[in-house]
């Protein structure tokens, strides 16, 4: 193999590697399913409109893509308007129907489906927090119930 061929193979391998890396998912992804629509992807930081009285499913996918992620998925905090989002807590504007329990799909992929009813009109903020010494994760999704 001459130098030119070796260089070409190396460059091709590097480009494939770069391409494969781009396929990595984000740290957390969110999908919302409702009665009036099938499913929609939600970007953290965005605002989504909901209808009062309707039920929704928020699917959260969390990929542990750090090598040594020391914070288990269970330690992810879900806050609604600054307090813990709790199951069947009638006073909360988004009434959570199921217990927050992660499903470990693979060693690194965890999924949770949060079923809730938009019970009170107004702006409701869900905050998702993972605290660790390496920056962690802290994002918000704003639901406007109309």
């Amino acid at each position: 193999m001459n130098n030119t061929m070796a260089r070409r193979i190396f460059m091709a391998a590097l480009m494939v590697t770069l391409g494969a890396a781009a396929a990595f998912a984000c740290e957390m992804s969110f999908t919302l399913e409702g009665q009036s629509f099938t499913s929609m992807s939600i970007q953290p930081g965005s605002t989504v409109k909901l209808s009062e009285g309707q039920s929704y499913k928020l699917t959260v996918e969390f990929n542990e893509d750090h090598r040594n992620c020391k914070v288990p998925a269970d330690e992810t905090l879900f806050l609604l308007n600054g307090e813990k989002w709790r199951v069947n807590k009638e006073t909360q504007a988004l009434l959570l129907k199921n217990v927050i329990e992660w499903d470990a799909v693979t060693n690194t992929k965890n999924v949770i489906v949060l079923e809730f009813t938009a019970s009170v009109k107004g702006e409701q903020v869900i905050q998702i927090v993972r605290e660790c010494s390496k920056g962690g994760y802290d994002e918000e999704i704003t639901f406007v119930v109309e």
């Binding site: 890396a21 990595f24 984000c26 970007q43 930081g45 893509d65 750090h66 020391k70």
Partner: peptide, 21 residues
């Protein structure tokens, strides 16, 4: 993705912190 995607490939970052998780 709204995250630091390039960090996953970035040799600049790997160089300075390859010993961390």
């Amino acid at each position: 993705s709204l995250s630091l995607m390039f960090m996953r490939l970035d040799p600049y970052y790997a160089l300075m912190h390859f010993w961390t998780g």
